[in-house]
Write a protein that binds this DNA or RNA. Structure first.
Lengths: 224, 224
DNA sequence: GTTCCCGCAATGCTGCCGCAATGATGGGGC
DNA sequence: GCCCCATCATTGCGGCAGCATTGCGGGAAC
């Protein structure tokens, strides 16, 4: 289990390194953003511990590169800035967890365990299909950077379909994605949403189409 | 996006529900462990928000069941107990994140976003045969990653056969797999489905063939 | 007040599915 | 071997369930 530790303070780095090694992890230590970039191109890591305050910039800048190069590496951001706004920014920038200094070593280890438990190969935050980009984090669709606004239910349909792009989505699964337990439905309301979404996708020339499979469900397909 | 909220305090539950709904999530609310168990057996949720202090026990007890029944559901534990030991216990028991009350709604939403960014439920139940992959969870077949679309009945035949790959499936067993009790059939309808499925398997060059065994049933065979 | 989402119902249509007819195949009896 | 019959395979066809689409009205949000 190889971990990348991006941290400039020598004492902190030494303490973390030895602690992680005690748990049978291999630690690569990078004191700067530049070192970190070199490290991620040379090795594949099981997780990244990332300090925000580094001599050559904010650690968050590294996240995009990590996502691009090694898609699903779990990232835990370490920082002295414990304010709520910062914590939200950390998570929203794509990190998997966020820990404010000072923290107990034990807690870091627990969070690391939690993050490593997750299945390997995370999907990206933004799914692209045809000319559509769907931002799962902020739940919004766009076409060529222009926001593609949809009513709530149609957005839910699109999200469910795009998450399983090119694969069938059972009709029942779609219903569950769109409707609540206590939402009672006695009509073909779902069909109408699919239909209206179809029309909008076509009008916007989105480059995808919704394909219905009789008796089974739907699937989202790239247009050839 | 369907969320299960396990929380007994009515005010807290109401606040969370409305907040989540404002972000276009579909919320099932369970005030007790018993309700929660019922909910997870009835539905598949994209994530679970779990309070620890419930009228009928510690919320952590639910985690094992969630893992057993719906493998990869992200779980966020909510609790008033903010002590370190508790937080570590929460994460180590299999939760994906842990949030101590009181927490800012914004932070919960950010953590939920982080956790939902992960791939939607990897279904481990995929059977491969020849060039075909059959996803039991999603009831879909694919060839070389391309969806292999089939009408419902033919899909059911394929599923029954592929589940017993290389072994004979009694004609009666096939009938049960494809038809309900109250479906009355008086013809060779099953044969027609087998036949049509055969043709499609051959056309798609699926690498398997359906072998008929006179007086007994059928079996699915790899092509040499 | 105005806008627009959403559920409902009516309509037309597509293609699945059951049926039956015909052809093919295999196994047993002699 | 040869024939015969039971069983299976295949194909065309028609009915109808399920899907697609559209207009409408209630109601929520602003």
């Amino acid at each position: 289990m190889r971990i990348l530790l991006v941290e400039d303070e020598v004492e902190m780095a030494a303490a973390l390194s030895s602690a992680l090694r005690r748990y049978d992890m291999v630690v690569d230590h990078a004191p700067t953003l530049a070192d970190a970039e070199e490290a991620i191109s040379a090795e594949v890591h099981a997780a990244v511990l990332l300090d925000r305050q580094l001599p050559d910039g904010d650690g968050l800048k590294l996240i995009a590169k990590l996502r691009a190069r090694a898609g699903g590496v779990p990232i835990i951001v370490l920082t002295a800035r414990g304010e709520l706004a910062d914590r939200v920014a950390g998570l929203d920038s794509g990190a998997d967890d966020y820990l404010a200094k000072p923290f107990a070593l034990e807690e870091l280890l627990a969070r690391l365990r939690a993050v490593l438990r997750r299945p390997a190969g995370l999907s990206p935050d933004i799914i692209r299909a045809g000319r559509i980009a769907f931002d799962l984090g902020h739940r919004e669709a766009s076409i060529d950077g222009q926001p593609f606004e949809l009513p709530r239910r149609e957005l839910l349909v699109l999200e469910a379909l795009i998450r399983r792009m090119g694969r069938t989505v059972l009709r029942s699964a779609l219903e569950e994605a769109v409707y609540n337990f206590d939402d009672e439905i006695q009509s073909n309301a779902l069909d109408t949403h699919v239909s209206r979404l179809r029309r909008k996708l076509a009008e916007a020339d989105a480059g995808v189409e919704i394909h219905g499979i009789r008796g089974v469900g739907y699937l989202l397909k790239k247009l050839s």
